[in-house]
Computed example of a mutant assay.
Amino acid sequence: MSTTIPVSIDTTPRGRTITTRRAFALRRGLGFLLASAFLVLVTFLIIPLLPGDPARAVLGTRATPEAVAALRDRFGLDDPLPVRLGDYVGGLLHLDLGVSYRYGTSVSETITTKLPYTLTLTALAIGVVLAVSVPLGVVIGVLTRGGRRPRLALGFGAVAGFMASVPGYVTGTLLIVVMSIWLDLLPPGGAMHPSSAVLPVLSLALGPLFAVARVVRQETQNVISQDFMRTARGRRLRATRLYAVHALPNLLTSTLTLCGLIISGMIGAAVVVESVFNYPGIGQEIVQAIIYKDYPVVQGIVLVLGLLAILVNLLIDAVLGLLDPRTLGESHV
């Protein structure tokens, strides 16, 4: 008597599927617009809500009233708030993020110069997280299924919990001490050589790597306890096909959901890690902008990083919709 793996047949009418996808796209598009509008409003309010006079903060306490008035007039700080908001939104529509108080240059140019460094670090860290955490979580989940190897399960849980809780800047500091000072294997900072990115990438990746691996391990154990996996094992499929073809696709939904949150956090964490390693990215620039009260640069960087986080979550939602069509109808319109 042969056994077969149950196959799920989609009986949803094609027209209804298309309508569901359109509704999904409409919801996500509307959510993106609302989140972006809120982000624009928040970044605009950075300057008006700051205590004191931004012009005085930039020029210093010894600046003459004439110089302060000239700077306020130059950057429109005396205009009514609605007018300033209109100018800010109008500039954004033309990809103009304003002018740096400190340099008198375009904020867009500053971000365009620095952002590639930050995106490179983040992309490499995300690659490390996905390349290591998913296989690691699956292997540990398989080895410890059904209460097997309790010591391995306990040890992995303790190590993963500890590593996931350590901030990236602490990890970065420890890596500098061990890898650069004690062992003299890697440069402690800068971006003069490709190897300079190794320690910042590890600092960004280690915590999220173990956080994702814990979720993957738990999801692996949930998936392999399902009836269709028992049937697949009964057919004596090879381990690679059993877990890669049958188990992996079923545990990716929750994994990708967590990855979306982690990736958004990594974009912000990169700002701090870059400061630890003196890496010439957005992190260094925003620190300098805060020190010198260069508020338009702060506005621009916060806006760009926020939009990147929103886009990442939108992309994750789209990928989840492709992998698991059931997520398309999570709310009906």
Rank of each mutant, 00 (worst) to 15 (best):
R148W: 03
A205M: 04
L242S: 00
S165M: 06
R230P: 04
A213D: 14
A211G: 10
L202N: 09
F156E: 02
R230F: 15
T231C: 10
L152A: 02
V215F: 05
H246F: 11
V215P: 06
N222C: 08
Q226G: 12
G168V: 10
A191N: 10
R145T: 13
L242G: 00
V177N: 11
T144G: 06
A232E: 00
L199I: 07
Q221I: 12
G189V: 12
L209C: 12
A232C: 03
I224W: 01
G234Q: 10
L209R: 01
G161Y: 05
S180K: 13
I224P: 00
I181W: 13
G189P: 09
L186Y: 07
V223C: 06
G146C: 08
R217W: 04
S196V: 09
V223R: 03
R217A: 00
T171N: 05
N222A: 15
R214S: 14
R233P: 00
P249K: 01
V142E: 08
P208W: 12
L237P: 02
R214C: 05
R214T: 15
M192L: 10
V198E: 13
T240D: 14
A211V: 13
Y169H: 10
F228V: 12
G157P: 02
V215A: 03
G146V: 04
A247V: 09
F156H: 01
A164Y: 13
D227Q: 14
Q218F: 09
V215N: 09
D184S: 11
T144W: 09
H193I: 09
L183H: 05
Q218M: 15
R148T: 08
S165D: 11
S225D: 14
A153T: 09
F162H: 05
L206C: 07
T173G: 06
V178G: 04
T144P: 12
M229N: 07
T231Y: 07
R148C: 07
N250H: 05
Q221N: 05
T240N: 13
A191Q: 00
E219W: 05
F162A: 15
T220L: 02
E219I: 03
V159P: 00
G207Y: 14
T220Y: 08
A211N: 14
H246L: 08
S225Q: 12
T144V: 10
V170F: 15
R217C: 02
M229K: 07
I181L: 15
P188I: 07
V216D: 07
R214W: 13
L242K: 02
N250W: 06
H246P: 11
L237T: 01
T231D: 06
L206K: 01
P208M: 11
P194F: 08
L143D: 04
P188D: 08
S203E: 04
L175V: 02
R230G: 05
S196Q: 00
G207D: 12
T231M: 09
G157W: 14
N250T: 03
L204D: 03
R214Q: 15
L154T: 13
V201R: 04
V159G: 03
P167L: 07
L186C: 09
S225V: 08
V245K: 14
Q221L: 07
V159M: 13
A158D: 08
L206V: 15
E219R: 03
R241C: 01
I181P: 02
V170D: 10
R233L: 12
R217H: 01
S196C: 09
A247P: 11
T173W: 12
T144F: 05
P208K: 05
S225A: 15
A211Y: 15
V212K: 04
R217D: 03
R148E: 10
